[in-house]
Design a protein around this nucleic acid. Sequence first.
DNA 1: TAGCATGATTAATC
DNA 2: GATTAATCATGCTA
Length: 412
Amino acid sequence: MDDQQTMMHPVSQHPTVGMGGHVVPQHTYGMDPTNQQHTSDQEVRKHDISEILQQIMNITDQSLDEAQARKHTLNCHRMKPALFSVLCEIKEKTVLSLRSTQEDEPPDPQLMRLDNMLIAEGIAGPEKGGGAGAATNASAAASGGPGQLEQTIEHSDYRAKLSQIRQIYHQELEKYEQACSEFTAHVMNLLREQSRNRPITSKEIERMVQIIHRKFNSIQVQLKQSTCEAVMILRSRFLDARRKRRNFSKQATEILNEYFYSHLSNPYPSEEAKEELARKCGITMSQISNWFGNKRIRYKKNIGKAQEEANMYAAKKAAVSGGGAAAYGMVPSSQGQMISPPPPPGPVPPSDGMYNMSMNGGDSYQSVSSMGANVQPQAHSQRHVFNQPAGMSEGLATASLYEPGVHQIQYG
DNA sequence: TAGCATGATTAATC
DNA sequence: GATTAATCATGCTA
């Protein structure tokens, strides 16, 4: 109420603007005695204006019901037109200072970023592949391997949590929007009511609505921020979960190693081969890619150990196919290398006496003399040089003859 | 429990 | 987009 009282001062203590906008002096120092009656009228008027303004001020402190009753009295007051014109003049002055604040503001870049992120994450805008999509994934995983199933379970769990966040976000947003529209309607009604007693233009009501919307928008920004944080936390949690690795099954590792060592000259499985391997091993395509990526690097880094492993797989494969290296009676040398036995009967071996054997599609061996030219590195691998031990290429049987640095096959 | 093995991630490269 | 190389983080084993 202190504010209201100080607001009263300009009217009660300074030259008063009277009816029709005339300035009415507040003080009567040195006044002509013949004007005494006129002065007394002025004082009465001043008192009336003060009273009516006081009533207006009081109304703001009252409940709507009380105010309603008061308003009626106020509307019927004989001084109302005078007061109205006073307010109009004050208004004229204050409106000037308001104009500068009505310029359009550019969209907040932070808000745009938040909106973009929420849309990208499927929180705002149309829902992305959740619900039915997740269910489809789960059923698809059921037909896949255990790794796939596990990953899909995690995936659907992620989607479920994301959809939970989405739901909460929309609930809160709806609440804010409802509160905003209710509050706006309330304020507009209030202003319209007040416009009967004081001059309020529709533009001012609009401006007030804008102010309210801005306030509610700032609340919405906070909601969006906390939603983004929740999504980030969820993402990092699932990212961490992905890092929790589990070793592939022995069988899967066997399959991958067999493929790797039987395609040593070009250990870059095609998309089809990756799919096939993924299906056989019950892991994903990206896991296959990871595995081959790791394998190639680690193979290169540790040739010695790789050789032993290569020989092992060669022997295994040969035993299975009833031929190949094992059939040729390869035995490890004292250095852990394989020593080639005399050539088997059949096709004439290459002039160096090596039996460069290759697994053709993993099913049969093929002499590298015919194979060498057939090695077709995939387009993407043409850029890369796989510094493989030449002897180990394709035909695991010749792994024994490899001496690091002597033979290197470069593709591309 | 230390040390190695191994799957996953990331930045750089082509 | 695939690959390499380095690295991280966890699993496994002696």
